[in-house]
Design a protein around this nucleic acid. Structure first.
Lengths: 200, 200
DNA sequence: CTGTATACTTACCGATCGGTAAGGTGTCAA
DNA sequence: TTGACACCTTACCGATCGGTAAGTATACAG
């Protein structure tokens, strides 16, 4: 894999996450490396294909996080917990992938017709399996298991995406306190959701 | 308030929610009413101002939902629950506001410098107050209360935003089952999070 | 009949968009 | 020495962007 190619992908991921597909021009991305947009097109033939490769890289990374969580614990509940916490305990500033996936979630009604690939599908299936493996959840319907997984995933993703806004509203120091309280509070909610007796 | 003005706001809300600020041109919006973009500029002087008015209308609607939930129940826990459920029990297709706010969350690092207004602030403060009013949560720190509120809010918002993608991945009928299971599952998580003994 | 304001129109502007065409430069194999 | 390929450039294209300028049509007050 070419060095320049990789740098293009890095720059594109950061810029697409910040401003969205329409908000960034291929010239903007090329400027980041001090090159012209035609250098970019030489490596990726079109803006749409570059975007696709960025998405692929992110979804691969998510799959890898799932694998790591699965290998790190024996108990299904622990696996799920570790995975979810690994999502929000990422090094600060590493929210680009999460933010970009959120944008994709909002935009892909447009892209679905053309691209036709659902990058999140294997990831969501793994999430559902993890929930259904938790004691007390074996007999939940796929819809119920996915609903719970999606709610926990949403809680994390929504917060990860809100960084700049929350910092703007509450100030940097209050946000710091919130970011610190968040994982503990999340762990508490996960435990409560997984261990409370199901009402059905 | 002019009739045409209102129609412009409706069309703009729907289109901005679908494609984002950069993804929609003022000509697109005007086309929706069979008018030219200069008719739009006559009412709103600039694209940025139109966008601001759309945001304002949505945040007003959210504030109204909070008020309704507060008036509809005596118990703080019930108020919170009713409010959160009213968010996800909206008539289908009414997710435009939610989706647009999600986009704003992603974009307003850019807009914050210019606009300077935090439409979500009063709404988040109301949310925090509701959590802190729940028995057992009075002594939680603001950060802890907000963290919980934000997690529940995120669970709902994330799902509301994912409609098209989930429909694409699982098909319309499976998605229907998921959308039906979601509120019950959410209620279960809310109850679990609010009533379980806090661990501190 | 005569302003004056509202609600729109057509015409046009410079800037920027994604993408094509063609050419230059370096490296490396035959 | 000669191709062939990878990598990158300048030059250019038609389309579209947000916004300005200058009207036109209607209604209504004096």
């Amino acid at each position: 894999m070419s060095e320049t190619r990789e740098q293009f992908l890095d720059a594109a991921e950061a810029l697409f996450a910040d401003k969205g597909f329409y908000g960034v021009s291929i010239a903007n991305i090329a400027d980041e490396l001090g090159l012209t947009k035609q250098a970019l097109l030489h490596h990726f033939t079109s803006k749409e294909k570059l975007y696709g490769e960025v998405l692929k890289r992110i979804s691969d990374h998510f799959d890898q996080l799932v694998d790591e969580a699965r290998a790190s614990a024996a108990e299904p509940a622990d696996q799920l917990k570790r995975f979810l916490l690994s999502l929000c305990a990422r090094p600060p500033g590493d929210t680009a992938g999460t933010r970009l996936l959120m944008r994709e979630l909002l935009d892909n009604k447009r892209r679905a017709d053309t691209a036709g690939t659902w990058y999140l599908k294997p990831f969501l299936e793994a999430l559902t399996d993890m929930v259904k493996a938790v004691p007390g959840w074996e007999r939940a319907s796929p819809a119920e298991a996915l609903a719970l997984g999606y709610q926990l995933l949403g809680a994390i993703t929504y917060f990860a995406v809100s960084g700049p806004t929350l910092k703007g509203i509450y100030g940097a120091s209050d946000y710091e306190a919130l970011a610190e309280a968040f994982p503990d509070q999340l762990q508490y909610v996960i435990d409560a959701a997984l261990t409370s007796p199901r009402s059905r």
